[in-house]
């Protein structure tokens, strides 16, 4: 009897604990789910950062390489030209039948050097070619000159009126008459009349007229 009672008690006890266990499990599983999600997000941040850093480094390296290649090409062009000129002098038995400055002008332009002399390499390096700025300044100057001319041409119109403010010039009077006649010819087309309480309140009229589509 004692055993049976104990078993029954234990059974009841377990039954009473069962809902607590289940709730504990569900909470634990829910927590695990939240943890998993947060872990997933964190792992996505790291590779993204790595990709960004690696990409920026790669970009900088490529740009640097490109600069080096470009610079080497420019200098090699000049070296080839100089070698060619020296060969020409040797072939011509030491006689120079060309202007070195003219020959090297294009190559120097490519390097951004204004060559006064072939020898003045270091001195001329500071003189960077800026042909565009000069031309822009000239254009700007010409625009200003034109504007000034226009202002000067328009000023004589002010002297048409006499001291009392009455226009005495015949040509000006004729022009005024012409413009008045042209103004009289222009009239407002009165095919459609629209009456509104407040000026510009077209929405009200649109509601009244059924023919006017809504989107207008």
């Amino acid at each position: 009897m004692f055993m049976a009672r104990q078993v029954l008690r234990n059974g009841l006890f377990l039954r009473s604990l069962a809902p607590i266990k289940i709730t504990a499990r569900t909470v634990a599983s829910a927590n695990a789910g939240i943890k998993r999600k947060s872990r997933f997000d964190k792992t996505m941040i790291k590779p993204l950062l790595l990709v960004m850093i690696f990409g920026s480094i790669l970009n900088a390296v490529i740009a640097e390489k490109r600069n080096i290649i470009d610079m080497e090409r420019k200098y090699k062009l000049k070296l080839d030209k100089l070698k060619e000129l020296i060969r020409r002098v040797h072939d011509n038995n030491g006689k120079v039948d060309f202007d070195a400055d003219d020959e090297l002008k294009l190559v120097n332009l490519r390097l951004g050097i204004v060559g006064k002399n072939a020898t003045g390499m270091k001195e001329d390096e500071t003189d960077i070619v800026v042909p565009k700025e000069e031309s822009l300044e000239e254009i700007w100057q010409s625009i200003i000159d034109e504007a000034k001319k226009e202002v000067i041409e328009k000023t004589p119109d002010a002297g048409v009126k006499n001291k009392e403010g009455i226009v005495t010039d015949l040509n000006v009077l004729k022009d005024l008459e012409k413009s008045k006649k042209e103004d009289e010819k222009v009239y407002l087309s009165g095919d459609v009349h629209m009456m509104m309480n407040q000026p510009g309140d077209l929405n009200e009229i649109a509601k009244e007229h059924d023919k006017i589509p809504k989107f207008l």
């Binding site: 080497e72 200098y75 090699k76 100089l82 002098v89």
Partner: peptide, 30 residues
Amino acid sequence: LEHEERESQLKKEVEILEHQLNELIVQDKT
């Protein structure tokens, strides 16, 4: 650094060749 070294090296080469060419021009003039 590599870029600057390469540039200075190329500049030196250009200067040497320019010097040679100038010498030839001076010889021709004299």
